[in-house]
């Protein structure tokens, strides 16, 4: 365990979050037959970028995210994060925010946030200090003692984000984190996430079904097709930051969203 105390909290070295996905394929067996889940996926993500993966159900976007997290191995090709291959979960490089209900209900919010640190034997005092800081960053100062079931859906996902950030990894992976939230909360959480992203400079890879959410959040939207999953389009989102609610009804926004929709309709 390396000392963490002297590292500026929650701010990674600027060049650490580079992701290179080179010609990645994923094959799995179903009823004795090989099924090609992902085919020839290559993607270069610069540090600090906000990249959103979209595509029809079964296009392998979640599979790709799980591979970035080191939870699954590609059948072919390589994935490099910060220049070295990712072959197993590495919380130093990657934090993961899951879909709803991934917090441990028997732990308080702060204990949930401390969980990754506790696994590595970080001292109680330092754990608490870092958890407090992470909770403050996500706007949950003073809620540390609550249990998840005492928090709203949006607050729970804030705790999940704090847990993903507490080890200060350069990369944050998010698997449909706001899918279970209502419309208003989802918009608020989107703005909150952008604020946190701007404050921390993380590379974010975000999976969603919502095209509006994709365009609203992203620097770049990666569109995937179904079976086998492959990249069919990569759109730069030239909208200025900070993004605002008014942009949603603008022509630029609509034409970007329409372009993504045409791809998805074609491949679904």
């Amino acid at each position: 365990m390396q000392p963490l105390a002297n590292v500026t909290p929650l701010r990674s070295p600027p060049r650490a979050g580079a992701i290179q996905i080179n010609d990645v394929g994923q094959v799995y067996k179903a009823r004795g037959q090989d099924v090609l889940a992902l085919s020839q996926v290559s993607l270069d993500i610069k540090p600090g970028r906000f990249v959103v993966l979209v595509g029809p159900s079964g296009c392998g976007k979640s599979t790709l995210l799980m591979m970035l997290a080191g939870l699954r191995q590609p059948t072919s090709g390589t994935i490099l994060i910060n220049g070295t291959p990712i072959t197993q979960p590495d919380p130093d490089r990657v934090g993961v925010v899951f879909q709803e209900a991934s917090l441990f209900p028997w732990l308080t919010a702060e204990d949930n946030v401390e969980f990754p640190l506790a696994l590595r034997g970080v001292s109680k005092a330092e754990r608490r200090a870092r958890a407090e800081e992470a909770l403050k960053l996500v706007g949950l100062e003073g809620f540390g003692k609550r249990h998840p079931q005492e928090l709203s859906g949006g607050m729970k996902q804030r705790v999940s984000i704090a847990r993903g950030l507490v080890q200060d990894p350069p990369v944050l992976l998010m698997d449909e984190p706001f899918a279970a939230l209502d419309e208003q909360t989802r918009m608020t959480m989107g703005d909150e996430l952008l604020r946190i992203w701007a404050a921390t400079g993380k590379t974010v890879v975000f999976v969603t079904h919502s095209l509006t959410e994709a365009v609203y959040l992203a620097d770049e939207v990666v569109v995937m097709s179904a079976r086998p999953g492959r990249i069919v389009d990569q759109l730069q989102i030239p909208l200025p930051r900070p993004r605002t609610y008014e942009m949603l009804s603008g022509d630029a926004f609509s034409s970007l969203r329409d372009r993504i929709w045409r791809h998805i309709r074609k491949s679904a």
């Binding site: 993961v96 899951f98 991934s102």
Partner: peptide
């Protein structure tokens, strides 16, 4: 829940840590 095990795995929990925590 499978989600709990995935969380533990993604944060690098060992088998003993997963059993205990």
């Amino acid at each position: 829940k499978v989600e709990y095990l995935t969380v533990a795995r993604s944060y690098g929990a060992t088998a003993i840590q997963t059993a205990w925590r």
